[in-house]
Every structure is written in C-alpha cells, then in structure tokens.
Amino acid sequence: MSNPAAQAEPWTHHEAVVNEVRLHWVQAGEGPLMVLLHGFPEFWYGWRKQIPALAAAGYRVVAPDLRGYNQSDKPAGIRPYRVQSRVDDVAALIRHLGAERAHVVAHDWGGIVAWWLAMVHPERIDRLAILNAPHPRAFSREIRRNPRQMMASWYAGFFQLPALPEAALRARDYRMLRGIFRAESVRPGAFSGEDIRRYRNAAAQPGALTAMLNYYRAAVRYPPPPTRTIPHPTLLIWGVRDQALTLELTEGLEPWVPNLRIERIPEASHWVASEYPDRVNALLTGFFGPAGG
C-alpha cells in the first residue's frame, strides 16, 4: 500500500551502492545535476527548504545521506570515514547519476567534503557553493593562531574520546543533540519540533551516532592529502553568529580559491539555510543562474 505522506513529499527517495557503500538520497526536479551535501548532525533533510526552490529553478537536485548517516550504510571503524572515502562517495554518486560533473552545494562536514572534492576531483564540479564550512587551509591557520577558534572547537577534542561522546549525546533522549538546534544564537522558529524529532530519530539508528562522530575522529587520525588551488566559481555563504566557526575563517581565502564570492549574513548562525531559506535560496539561484543558461 502506498504511503499518502510520502506521496505528498516534493521529492522521491532512491538508493544504490556506490564506492562500495549503499547511499540513500532524495531527488527532485529535472535539468543539470545539483548535489547538496549536509553536515553534522543533520542528514539530507537539512536541505528541506532548498530542494523545492532549486528544483523549481530548473535543476535535478539530489541530496544524499552521507555515509554513516540516516539511511545510508554505516561502515564499522574510524578509517572508513576519512575524507578521501567521503570524497570518493560523492564523485561516484555523480557518475552513478549519469553525469560527468555537477553543481555542488554543501554545509558543515558536507562543506569539508565539497572543498576536498573540488581539489581531488575537480573534473566532477561545475560551480561550488559552501555554507559555514571552513576551507581546510583557513581552519588550520585559525586553529593555530586564533584563541577564539581554539576555544570554539573544544567539542572536536571531546569527540575524540571513545564511547563517552556517544553516551553524552544519547543521554536524556538525545537532549544534547536536540539542543544543538535550539542554541541561543539560533533564530527562533528555524527548527520545528518535527524537524528536531527527525534529527533525533536519524541519530538513534543503530550505529549512526558513532559513525557521525567518526568524521571528527578520522580527521585527526587520517590527515587529508595536500591542498590544491580551487579554480571553480565558488560562493561562500556565512552565518556570522556561528558559535563553532569564527568569522576570521572567511578571510584571506583568495590564494586558495581565486574565483570566490563571499556573502556574510550577520544575523544568521551556523544553521543559515534553515534560518534564512529565502535569502539563501536567492543567493544560490542567482549564483548558479538559470539552468542551462
């Protein structure tokens, strides 16, 4: 029997094995391929306010659950979550979808994947848009010289511990995880109770919480390859009230990303796409232009 609620969704659900992992994604629209990459602790649903608008602009919009998240596979151990594996997942997904290249929009850990995808597989990207995810060179610079960034990144050190971070995030029905979306800096109403329930349920799937935290653990244990200049037209959208990532991360990027445009939104937090979807959607459609144009 069909599910009426699923029929009402403005996207369809798909899955396939790519790069030796089964990935789940949602898809909407027709036209040039656009891939949306979520961050921690979200899943494809983090783009719920962008998918319809970008599909209406004439794009085939695909938003996957990255490996370890929600309905995608959750390989055991830390090594499967190193940056190269996640980058290869996205490159393989683009090929699986029948495209040579795609526009890529990404946030947080998805943004880290996208920065590296542009460096490691530049042939797979047309244009790139990043939301509140630091360029690797900028983050390395600021974590060394900026005490504010060092303090803001405390949680990444905590996540290196075995088992304890999982227990803390799971405690009291995932109270800490749910609180991430209701921090003081977050615009009221950006996340509904249903939104937070979905994030809680995705994190509660067997193996998901450890897999999500293994992104942080793998980043320390398995350093990525050397950085390269990113030639693609790139848009960086930055919520200035981000409590985990300082504004200095948006400065001095031109030597590494020479074709860069930066849009800072002073009143937005880390969750800029959920807080100010109309503004973000307008920036994205303006940057990518009319499909086929």
Results as ranks from 00 to 15, higher is better:
N3H: 13
N3D: 15
A8R: 14
E9Y: 06
W11V: 10
H14A: 08
V17N: 04
N19C: 09
H24E: 10
W25F: 13
V26G: 13
P32V: 06
P32I: 05
L33T: 12
L37I: 11
G39Y: 03
Y45W: 10
G46C: 03
W47L: 02
R48M: 03
L54G: 02
L54I: 08
A56D: 14
A57P: 00
L66N: 04
N70V: 02
S72L: 01
G77L: 10
I78W: 01
P80Y: 05
R82Q: 08
R82K: 05
Q84N: 09
Q84I: 10
D89L: 01
I94V: 15
G98R: 09
A99C: 04
D108T: 02
I112L: 11
L117C: 07
R124F: 13
I125H: 07
A129E: 07
L131W: 05
A133L: 08
H135W: 09
P136D: 13
F139M: 15
S153I: 13
Q160G: 14
P162L: 13
A168G: 10
L169F: 14
L169I: 15
M176Q: 14
R178T: 08
F181W: 14
S185E: 15
V186Y: 05
G189Q: 11
E194L: 05
A204V: 07
Q205C: 02
A211W: 02
M212L: 02
N214E: 08
R221H: 06
R228S: 08
H232S: 05
V240E: 10
Q243E: 14
T250V: 13
G252K: 01
W256N: 07
V257C: 10
P258I: 04
N259P: 05
R261Y: 06
E267G: 01
S269T: 06
W271S: 02
E275V: 10
P277M: 07
F288I: 07
G289A: 10
G289W: 05
G289H: 08
G292H: 06
G292V: 05
